[in-house]
Design a protein around this nucleic acid. Structure first.
Lengths: 258, 258
DNA sequence: GCGGGCGGTTCCGGTGAGTGAAACGATGGC
DNA sequence: GCCATCGTTTCACTCACCGGAACCGCCCGC
């Protein structure tokens, strides 16, 4: 292909993917020109490729002429192991926990040096939080993050401890303090945060284990930790162990992993 | 491009998309050969394209050598208006309803002549159901389906009424009976099913309106309708109206629609 | 151990699908 | 009514893609 000055070395496929990748949480609806710019493509090329993507259903065009991610891409995305595996298996346990507490419930895994939220349940009675399904947040400021960090490889821990950004006045940004907390998390088998990610929100989180490995974390967000911390931790550990057992159950042939 | 006998008329983009589209609910993990076959591509071509898709994160390869949908595609899919719009806005209301009933809660829209499930909450205390998020079921055998069908364009109604497949012995497959039920749904403003989709499961559903238009449906699955049907319907209509109001609220700039 | 079948991977000559500057059209703001 | 901006169409050039053929590595049956 190519033919014009085409000084890129990019394949058609990579260009099409670049167009899809032009969308992110901060850019959900893009005009053709914006798409072309973000994908670093000439406008006519973008136009042609986008046409094909729309025809297939990967993108769709709003009445206003902007482009958005299409329904079909959502469909296919739901087939990813991140969604079909751990998440679906854990879902009933999360709902049980939500039903019992009416607080925001989180399911998260580690993705590099971030926490990736696989699921989130939140009603009107729950404390408002910033996370959404699919979002990635720093590990050191969230309950689930601390649990996953406490059981992460030393290299990851070192990396995270070296870059402790402050999000609220209560965010822990002293490596020593955090290191001591992580030891505590391993000892107690649960982690907490107090307004470290957003003001007015505290959290408790426990590890989910498959055999001995910590593969995920279960968290809950509450307005205060002062009351029934023990009750919460107990309920969460029951749920976490239930999920861990279900993970190993061969009858629920889960797409390993996430 | 092309060059060899290449008797297809297919563009590179369409081939790449065909590979992505080769995955569906019944085919979540595919070998290279299976992928090539399902996408109707020669194996070497599939191999090359799949390599690019994996590099980008659209697909990924399991340790067993099979291919699955990648995390990045899941990420992008979550940005689709089906997920970010109605679903996220309705989510707290669904959770409130779940918290109050502990029954399976559904949010669905019409997609052609099927019901498309946008969200589903279900704990261990809930009746087991077949639907999953993203799945499409026939309209005539589900509560949310009946609601959406009752307010669908006449052409769609005619189409559906002409093809009433029987799923359980209780599934309604007489057009006249269903037509009368739909009139009843419009009058009462809620629909019910009794073991029409799966044995042991009954459901109640109400419409969600933006202005006068029915844009979605809220449903609940219970073991029996005999008790507190009135209380359920009332709670659901409150939630549905809350969602409808939120839909029109310009401050929650929802990606119209779905 | 050995042969044969089966997936996956690499090679490579030929060529038409894809490229993007340029020109044209459609909006809309002032 | 004029200009600016964004979207769309055109078209000659060419190189990135194509896929048959050959190769590799593994497992299974004998």
């Amino acid at each position: 292909m190519s033919g014009n000055v085409s000084r890129s070395g990019a394949t058609v496929t990579s260009r099409a993917l670049a167009l899809i990748g032009a969308f992110d949480a901060r850019h959900r609806r893009l005009s053709l020109s914006q798409l072309a710019e973000r994908a670093e493509l000439p406008v006519p090329t973008a136009h042609r490729l986008v046409g094909e993507l729309v025809a297939w259903g990967a993108l769709s065009r709003t009445s206003a002429g902007k482009y958005v991610v299409g329904r079909r891409l959502w469909d296919v995305g739901l087939l990813a192991p991140v969604n079909t595996g751990l998440r679906q298996l854990a879902s009933p346990y999360l709902h049980d926990l939500y039903g019992a507490t009416l607080a925001t419930v989180h399911l998260a895994v580690r993705d590099g040096d971030k926490v990736l939220y696989l699921d989130r349940l939140s009603g009107h009675a729950s404390v408002p939080v910033v996370s959404t399904i699919g979002s990635r947040l720093p590990m050191h400021a969230t309950g689930v993050g601390k649990v996953l960090l406490a059981h992460a490889p030393p290299a990851v821990q070192a990396e995270v401890l070296a870059h402790l950004t402050r999000i609220t006045p209560y965010t822990i940004n002293q490596p020593g303090t955090l290191r001591r907390q992580l030891a505590r998390v391993r000892k107690d088998d649960y982690a907490t945060t107090v307004e470290e990610m957003s003001l007015g929100a505290c959290s408790v989180a426990v590890p989910i284990r498959a055999k001995a490995d910590v593969v995920a974390s279960l968290g809950i967000v509450v307005p205060t930790l002062r009351k029934d911390r023990a009750r919460l931790v107990a309920a969460m550990q029951v749920a976490a162990r239930g999920i861990g057992r279900a993970l190993l159950d061969p009858s629920t042939s889960v797409d390993h992993f996430h």
